[in-house]
Design a protein around this nucleic acid. Structure first.
Lengths: 352, 352
DNA sequence: TCTGAGTGTTTAATCGATTAACCTCGAGTG
DNA sequence: CACTCGAGGTTAATCGATTAAACACTCAGA
């Protein structure tokens, strides 16, 4: 049941191993008579010949294998599409992916790099489960590209989401609907994603004339639904004029929904909500569906692999660049114009 | 910057390549003087020598690479832990994983198998994103194991969840709390997971004397939250005595929560709810937290790899077996004893 | 002195594919 | 007729590690 070797093919075709190799690799188009070539091809076909990648790689000093270091992408439900994008792109160029899952520590990187070096991967792609700055060690593969992450020292090619323009899409939706009392449920960490989204928020606030946006920002310790809930409660009770809340991500937005429901606020009639990430388990399940932005995971994976292959295949000098990619707006129904005057919540409270 | 070869090491140590190899592989413990051995080791150290896996594999005819065919595991947020379990187990035995993502069609399998055969994987693990029956082609790797799936013809070793006993844990919780009017929001497909869970439901109904369980089963077309909502509404309006609902999975349970909230039923006071899967994005985010069962993904991945390695390393005859593994009960607070008499919903309606 | 048995180390074949360099033969050229 | 040249192949080195078999040497025993 073992695969046939080139020697077996060449014997069946009654030629030398060299001839068989040359014919099958197509690297000597017209050095052989059509009959010889055909005989070789038939023999290969008959024996189900496939070239032994180990042997080829050993000889050619390239494996056509790309290492993929997954920083928690495999084990968190956020960014699987990035790997799919990467795999599709790689397969399309006849490369395969060797995937190693690690946490993001420098030691784990070193181990991962070592393992991939042992396998003689032609290049390495590091994919992160969210847009962060990674401590990529100095000792690193010759060809390296990052996806959904940048190197702390910005010394590596990277494909990241355009946080600013992406979230601006939902901010515009809020602004154009006429909201001016807008709150923001954020994250307290210092990540590029956090900085980018808040910068966009402030720009939008300026542009649309949102009222006292600085005071309507609450930053959660963590970004789970329950933090979103507490933050939203805090926002909505402190500022009863709020008619829209922007959440840093969909999980926080989920908490905002719960807060709204508890306070008797209908979404979107009394309160518009937008999220970020388009985590389907949440954004599709909430009622009404959450208007949010889908991160360009597939694209980042694809582009990163294509860049990596181009690095591998041309030995030209390369100047590392960070490419920011737009996310897709997904409108579902959690945004509506504000009620006249103020939201139901504040008017009800006004009565009592 | 390229890695040192054995020849370079041997030259530095002033011995033959054979000696260097023998010393470093530890396969000839006392054939050399301690001084020679030490000299070789020092040289290897100094040069940062690591054996070239391609060369070794080519020679030894085994790669210490296991293929992992992921049937949508990578790209759905359900079962990433299975891959983590598999990778950890493999690394612990000095194997690496070559992962290929496919959909579950026979053609995709064939392609995946071919690709892994090209890479001379020593064995292949197929991991599915849920417990299903897979059409594994006849032409298959010599060593093959399934995780979270069985072969249609049951001809392959498999590690699967014990659906019956796993869900019985939450069913017992419901029964022991004293509920007798129990509803079930199910799935209409004919999967092992569906059959196992419904069988357990019926067994529990018998054991606890649940009232007319057959009539309180609604099967959804799909298993998203919105189907769970519609099914729960149907159940709760048709049978006002229901005090507990069991959902086929957490996503459906999420819909049940919404239905309950819409009907003014408090969970767990008026209605107990249990799910299955422990999908954290849902089970942790819902209020109250969802009591559910965590599938043994990590374990399945781990055990499958260990079985696979044992197949690879001993050429003994093997009789395929399917091993069912228990899931873990996760209690969060969506179960309470029923209200005296009946639920709030039915009593309120009774008044009007 | 010769044989035998260890010890310590090297020689050389091998895994399978690639490819530069070489060979052979017949046709064409001056 | 001697010589060149191209078409159509083949030879053999190479990638790096593994390992059976051979070799060189020492020392004990006959």
């Amino acid at each position: 049941m073992d695969r046939a070797t080139l020697r077996e093919v060449s014997e069946l075709a009654d030629v030398s191993v060299a001839t068989a190799s040359l014919v099958l690799s197509g690297k000597a188009e017209n050095r052989f008579t059509p009959e010889t070539a055909e005989r070789v091809r038939q023999a290969a076909d008959k024996l189900g010949y496939r070239t032994n990648r180990l042997a080829r790689s050993l000889r050619s000093q390239q494996t056509r294998v790309l290492g993929l270091i997954s920083v928690e992408v495999l084990t968190t439900p956020y960014a699987g599409d990035m790997i799919r994008g990467a795999q599709t792109a790689a397969r399309g160029r006849d490369y395969d992916l060797l995937i190693v899952e690690i946490d993001g520590t420098p030691e784990a990187f070193a181990e991962g790099f070592e393992l991939l070096a042992d396998h003689r991967a032609d290049g390495v792609l590091v994919a992160s489960f969210f847009h962060q700055e990674l401590p990529v060690p100095e000792v690193r593969p010759r060809h390296l590209v990052l996806a959904d992450a940048v190197a702390l020292d910005h010394s590596v090619d990277a494909f990241i989401p355009n946080e600013f323009d992406s979230i601006t899409q939902v901010l515009n939706l809020i602004g154009e609907a006429g909201h001016v009392h807008v709150g923001y449920v954020g994250d307290c960490n210092d990540f590029p994603a956090v900085r980018g989204r808040e910068a966009a928020l402030k720009a939008a606030a300026d542009r649309f004339g949102w009222v006292k946006i600085e005071e309507n920002i609450v930053r959660s310790e963590d970004t789970n639904s329950s933090d979103g809930y507490h933050s939203a409660i805090k926002l909505l009770t402190a500022n009863r004029d709020l008619t829209a809340i922007v959440a840093y991500n969909d999980r926080l937005a989920m908490g905002v929904y719960r807060a709204a429901s508890e306070l008797g606020l209908e979404i979107p009639e009394d309160l518009s909500v937008v999220g970020f990430d388009d985590q389907l388990l949440i954004s599709e399940a909430l009622r009404p569906g959450l208007t949010t932005v889908a991160l360009p995971h597939l694209e980042m994976g694809r582009l990163a692999v294509e860049k990596l292959i181009s690095l591998v295949e041309s030995e030209d000098e390369n100047t590392p660049a960070e490419v920011a990619i737009m996310g897709d707006l997904v409108e579902r129904g959690s945004v509506a114009p504000p009620r006249k005057g103020s939201n139901k919540f504040s008017s009800e409270l006004g009565k009592s």
